[in-house]
Amino acid sequence: MATSKTTTAKATTAERTASRTAARTASDRAASARLDVPKTYKLFIGGAFPRSESGRVTEVTDAKGRFVANVAKASRKDAREAVRAARKAHPGWAGATAYNRGQVLYRVAEVLEGRKAQFVDELVRTEGLTAARAAKQVEAAIDLWVWHAGWTDKIAAIAGNANAVAGPYFNISVPEPTGVVAIIAPQTDGLLGLTSVVAPALVTGNSVVVVPGSAQLSAISLAEVLATSDLPGGVVNVLTGDAAELAPWLASHADVNALDLTGAGELDWITLEQSAADTLKRVLRPEPGIAPETPQRILALTETKTIWHTKSRL
């Protein structure tokens, strides 16, 4: 380049044009020679992005069967690590103020908004949606995060109560998070389906181990958003892979407190429910499509704590 600059000073117009053309072709060549930097979509466990312990991956292809990306395929040991991470993160998240949880969930929506294009692109490539429909889905997901962010400090007001008792006592009931929730996410609607099950669990302070459905790429990209949204590591853990393989281990795991089978309609969910009953888990049964956007869904993953306290007599 330095040489070409010095020669240009003395060069004729024709020479200058020729040299410019040469430079352009060189840069074109450089552009086409740049190697692809394909992304490996890894798991999300305890705030980190490890590969599967098993070393397995699944190929994700587009609607026409062309290769898009490799996605880590989680094993039962990854599920065990995810539950351990979720258990470790639970006290901190459940103990955060409702106001703080709301801020974090709202932040998720903000960061998602900034990375909308990436999510649209992934949905277009893997789910075969048109760009317009993909954008609509991503926007709906963002709105759903905002909707849930709003509920964090209001849910106790509709589910809690100051109970009337026959004695000089305060008697107060409040909803508390169930604990570690294992979720089989809806098989459809990608990012929106995933949000519809993960967000309601997070509102009251549960920590989550989620097996995403079809939207494996969106799930890991969402994990990247969660990791940069002040959500403490381990509160959400994403295990891409085969739900039929992972679900039995999560359903029987003694340290999982609730099992959300919303997207498990195609699995042998009755066996999963029976297995969950061994350790008295709260179970949500499969539903078609995405989970409905209701406060009941948030409350389905809570336990009611009732406190008696003496009234002082001054």
Partner: peptide, 14 residues
């Protein structure tokens, strides 16, 4: 040990 005998993962509650 509980994992080996029951075939499922156990937890600190047990």
């Amino acid at each position: 040990r509980q994992k080996l005998t029951t075939g499922r993962y156990s937890g600190p509650d047990y």
